[in-house]
Simulated scan of single mutants.
Amino acid sequence: MTIKRVTGILLIIITSGWTNESLPSAKLLEYCNVFRQIQVDVRDCVISPDSATRAFQENMKNLRAVFARDSCRSIDSTYFVFPVRCYLPAESIGGRGRGYRPDGFDLFDMEVKGSHPAHDIFIRDKDKDQIDDRTWKPVDILAFTSGVVLAVEKDWQYDSDRRGGNWIWIYDPCLDGLFYYAHNNVVEVQPGQWVNAGDKIAEMGRSGYNAYKKRSPTHLHLMFLKLTPEGLPEPQNTYDWMMMAAVKE
């Protein structure tokens, strides 16, 4: 890694309010790499749910130690930016929030099916060409809150049977939880990068096994997993947050 790259990551952390300089920035990237590897191993069924759980808890413990949470701002309506540019929550959140179904979710077990601990946010794209029917432009995906990018997938292919497509995981230290943005077309962030609420992180797409099918409307899949004190991920409904979030033109 170049000195310029390491310095850049450290600067991002410091200017965002995180000043724990005792841990080298290279460690942050190491934790990001571990996070991604756990997701890949679970996806490929090469790790047991119990082993994945333990590895995840240890890695999140390390990530938590990077950030001084006493520098967090208050969590109010100004904390959030609606993650789809130029769309209102009331017109775009699928089923007015009724699509959120957390029961049975397990991040570490690919055999578990039937839950949907997330919200799908739809755009006007009748011909499903990933272009907004009103503006004739791609639709920007914005960071819902501020946080550090932990892992991304950029290379999904249309003939892949993998769900999620091109995805992004972001850790918000103040909420102490993980945001998952799925089905993107173009991903524009990198692991270790700090993003502020409202920053462009991707362009909406149709990537992912189910999202690519013609029957599926073009949408963003947004999930939030709140971490327990033990570092375990539990789904939390973001509907009320989205309804009060600022809308960015």
Rank of each mutant, 00 (worst) to 15 (best):
T2Y: 14
I3P: 07
T7L: 15
L10Q: 14
I13Y: 15
I14D: 12
G17K: 13
W18I: 02
T19V: 08
N20L: 00
P24C: 09
P24S: 05
S25Y: 02
A26F: 04
K27T: 12
E30C: 10
Y31H: 10
N33V: 01
F35G: 00
F35E: 05
R36C: 02
V40R: 15
V46P: 02
I47N: 10
S48N: 05
D50H: 14
S51A: 13
A52V: 07
A55T: 06
A55L: 14
Q57A: 10
N59E: 04
L63Y: 04
A65T: 13
F67P: 03
S71L: 11
C72N: 14
I75Y: 00
T78H: 14
P83R: 08
V84S: 01
C86G: 07
L88Y: 11
P89S: 00
G94P: 01
G94H: 07
G95E: 12
G97W: 01
R98V: 08
R98H: 06
R98A: 13
F105G: 06
L107G: 03
V112Y: 13
G114H: 10
G114D: 04
G114A: 07
P117Q: 10
P117W: 11
I121G: 00
K128C: 04
P138M: 13
L142S: 02
T145G: 01
L150E: 00
W156N: 01
Q157N: 13
S160F: 15
S160L: 05
D161Y: 11
G164Y: 09
N166L: 08
W169I: 00
I170S: 06
Y171H: 01
D172C: 08
L175A: 02
F179H: 08
F179M: 12
Y180A: 06
A182K: 08
H183V: 01
N184L: 05
E188S: 09
Q190D: 11
Q190G: 04
N196R: 15
A197I: 05
G198H: 12
G205K: 08
R206V: 01
G208W: 07
K213Q: 13
S216K: 12
T218S: 11
T218V: 14
L220F: 12
L220Q: 07
L220K: 11
H221M: 06
L225H: 14
L227E: 01
T228G: 10
E234A: 15
P235S: 15
Q236V: 09
Y239S: 03
D240T: 07
D240A: 13
M242T: 04
A245Y: 11
